[in-house]
Structure formats: structure tokens, C-alpha cells
Design a binder for these strands. Structure first.
Length: 274
DNA sequence: TTTTTTTCCTGACAGC
DNA sequence: TGCTGTCAGGAAAAAA
């Protein structure tokens, strides 16, 4: 389940293998993946072009073509990219590009939740319905107390749910939201508005530290599918509370419950509710 | 307006 | 073995 670190790792990977290669064929066996363009138009738009720049905004991947048009991909739950030097089709490969050098980039998505949009240029992509409402990047200078605290203070949502809100700060998903609450000793159910400025600062610091460290470990891989050629990350070994039964700090059993339909972990002793 | 619930989808797994 | 039910979760849409 890709959150910001996983998407960044994918971006780094794609930049090593598919940049500046001429696309000679496009296959889309699952047309519903394409949200605002037909299969015919999509193929026509990509044929004989190449990707000149690949980067991310939040959890969205932007593939900029040499004619400035942009493909925007969101992996949602299980989407993944695999590059192969020789083509072999795996189960759930829903889209792939063949390059002039013989390489193939495949998009694989067992749950079919991922989306692909297509825009005339970067400005149009960034102004689109999906990207336009995104909040600040967690590694940017804009992600600071002056920006975040007033919004946290104005919300009655549980803090963990608030952290997942991509219109405030992008990139945090369920796993890292759990980790951030644990590291900052805050019960995930605490209403956001109850938190002090110093705690919001601690959340900002923890968010940046955790996401950064996870990228260094190639992200978190919770579900590994045998058909995937994608090299899994190893940050799951560093997770302090997600998927654990006993607290690393105090060895008490960790409480597990659903908070707004999301699996939530909390150590009653180490995390305080306000 | 803000927050919560439902929906999308398939594979893994538990229980019978 | 094989069926049924439940769960996982990002984000849009619908409901409260």
C-alpha cells in the first residue's frame, strides 16, 4: 500500500530505467484504468513519444512526455510498476509500454483501484480536480507550525484521521499515521483540536523523520506477492507499532481497533488521550 | 460545512 | 475440498 516513501522509491526506480526511451507500443487490457481518456486516444498520445521527466506530487506520479503532455498515475492500494528487459505477462498486468530498446514497463494492480489521468501539460495536471486540492509536501518549508497548527486546531477529527487528510499535508497513509501517533505519544483518537502547539511541532518533526527514514529503507512492504518483480522495501522491520502485538517501549499488549474504518494501533500506557 | 460511511476490487485467510 | 464470510485500505462519493 504505497504511501509517500513507497511512491518516492518507485519514482527513483522509474528514473533509472524508462527515461528518454521511445515508446513503440502501448497495451491497455483494462480500459477502466484510464479515467479521462479513451484507450484509442491514450495509445495515440503515447506512441513514438518518450518520458522526459518523472516525479511525484503527494502520492501521484507524473510522467511528462517530450511534447509536454502528462500522464498522472495513482497506485492506490496495490498498484506497482515493473520494468523488464524481456516481456513476460503476469497476472494483473493491466497496462504496459514497449520501448525501442526492447524494454517493457508494466503496470500491475491486483485490486484494480489505481487510476490514470491524462493532461495537455503540467499546469493542467496540477490544476486538475485530483491534484489541485492537495496540501503541502511534508519535506517542504511550508510544512511548519504556522501552517499546520491552525488547521489542526480547527478540526474535531481524531488526530490520526486528520493526518490522513491529503488536502492539509500530502503523503501520509494509514501505516505512517499510526507510527506518527506512537512516536509522539499521542492516542490516535485524540481530537485534533485538543493538541497544543508543541505537540503539533512534534508531529511535524516525527512525520519528516519517519518518511525520510522509510525512503532510506526503500519503503514499507506489508503484502508481497509472489508474482511481483518489484524488490520489496524493508522499512516494515523498523515500524514501531503498526502490525505489532506488544509495545516496543513498555511491552504491554497493543490495542487494535478501527478508527474511521482504518486499522489502528495504540499502546494505552505510552500514548495519552487528550 | 464538517465528519462519517460506503464504495470500488481481489486475494488471503478463518471457519465450517 | 470447497464454500461463505471477513478483512485490508486510498480516496471519491454519498450520507449523516
Amino acid at each position: 500500500m504505497p504511501e509517500l516513501p513507497e511512491v518516492q522509491v518507485v519514482i527513483n526506480y522509474l528514473n533509472t530505467c524508462v527515461l528518454n526511451q521511445e515508446i513503440v507500443a502501448v497495451h491497455v487490457p483494462l480500459p477502466k484504468l484510464l479515467k479521462n481518456i479513451s484507450v484509442v486516444q491514450f495509445k495515440k498520445a503515447l506512441l513514438h513519444r518518450h518520458f522526459k521527466k518523472i516525479y511525484r506530487r503527494g502520492k501521484f506520479l507524473l510522467f511528462v512526455l517530450d511534447n509536454d503532455k502528462v500522464m498522472v498515475s495513482h497506485l492506490r492500494m496495490e498498484g506497482k510498476y515493473n520494468y523488464q528487459t524481456e516481456f513476460s505477462q503476469d497476472k494483473h498486468d493491466h497496462l504496459w509500454w514497449e520501448f525501442a530498446n526492447g524494454g517493457v514497463l508494466k503496470y500491475n494492480d491486483s485490486r484494480q483501484f489505481g487510476t490514470i489521468h491524462f493532461y495537455d501539460n503540467e499546469a493542467a495536471a496540477l490544476a486538475s480536480k485530483e491534484l489541485q486540492k492537495l496540501g503541502v509536501e511534508p519535506f517542504s518549508e511550508e510544512f511548519n507550525v504556522a501552517y499546520y497548527y491552525p488547521q489542526v486546531h480547527a478540526s474535531k477529527k481524531p488526530i490520526k484521521t486528520f493526518l490522513l487528510d491529503q488536502s492539509k499535508v500530502v503523503g501520509i497513509g494509514n501505516i505512517y499515521a499510526n507510527e506518527i501517533c506512537f512516536v509522539t505519544h499521542i492516542d490516535p483518537r485524540t481530537p485534533a483540536c485538543k493538541l497544543k502547539k508543541s505537540q503539533v511541532q512534534a508531529i511535524i518533526d516525527a512525520t519528516q523523520a519517519i518518511l525520510k527514514e522509510s525512503i532510506a529503507f526503500n519503503g514499507t512492504t506489508i503484502h508481497t506477492f509472489t508474482f511481483s518483480k518489484w524488490k520489496p522495501g524493508s522499512y516494515q522491520e523498523k515500524l514501531q507499532i503498526y502490525d505489532r502485538e506488544e509495545c516496543l517501549r513498555c511491552h504491554q499488549p497493543i490495542e487494535f481497533f478501527k478508527l474511521n474504518q482504518r486499522g489502528t494501533y495504540c499502546c494505552k500506557k505510552c500514548q495519552k488521550k487528550y
